[in-house]
Amino acid sequence: MVGPGVTERPRVELIDAESASGLADLLHQFLEQTVEASEAKAQAARALKGEVVVRAAEDEEIAVRIAFQGDRIELRDVGKAATGSAPSIQGDFLSVAHVTSGQASPLALVASRQLRVSFGIAQLPFLFRVLGFMRVDDGAERPRRLRAIALVLVLVLVLVLVLVASLFK
């Protein structure tokens, strides 16, 4: 039963859970908890349509395909099998954790080769939205960041005004 203004959370399902890799199991729990974290995260998940493959740098036989299907997110181990045209992200545990926890920019990790990403140009917006959805955000971070940006802008404005005023003295 869902209350007014709150919609059903997308279902997160791990295929062949009994024999799943640890990465698939961790991602399954992570996505379930992310979807449950807030209505905004649930909405972001519902808006995603497409697939992404996450590969472990520690073991090339570990790869998980995540299919975002609106009301359902499906995870499946794919190992070394070909994954078609789905975009893929490969990184070690720490790099993936740093991206999802917002401690590092995916672009910086790609530049330093800690994260390897393959995608078609048309898939780039989807990939960014997936990373945005997966990023841990407890809801308190964004207002704090906005306040900090606003404070910096006000300080810059005050400095500019002081400089301009001193020029016209």
């Binding site: 799943a20 890799s21 640890g22 990465l23 698939a24 199991d25 961790l26 729990q29 992570f30 908890q33 992310t34 974290a37 472990a56 520690e58 073991d59 570990i62 545990f93 993936v96 954790a97 999802t100 926890s101 401690q103 841990v136």
Partner: peptide, 17 residues
């Protein structure tokens, strides 16, 4: 952990952070 030889249950968001 990634291979599933160690089963991990818990708050994965905290683990990532």
């Amino acid at each position: 952990g990634l291979r599933g030889q160690i089963k991990i249950r818990g708050d994965m968001r905290f683990l990532m952070q």
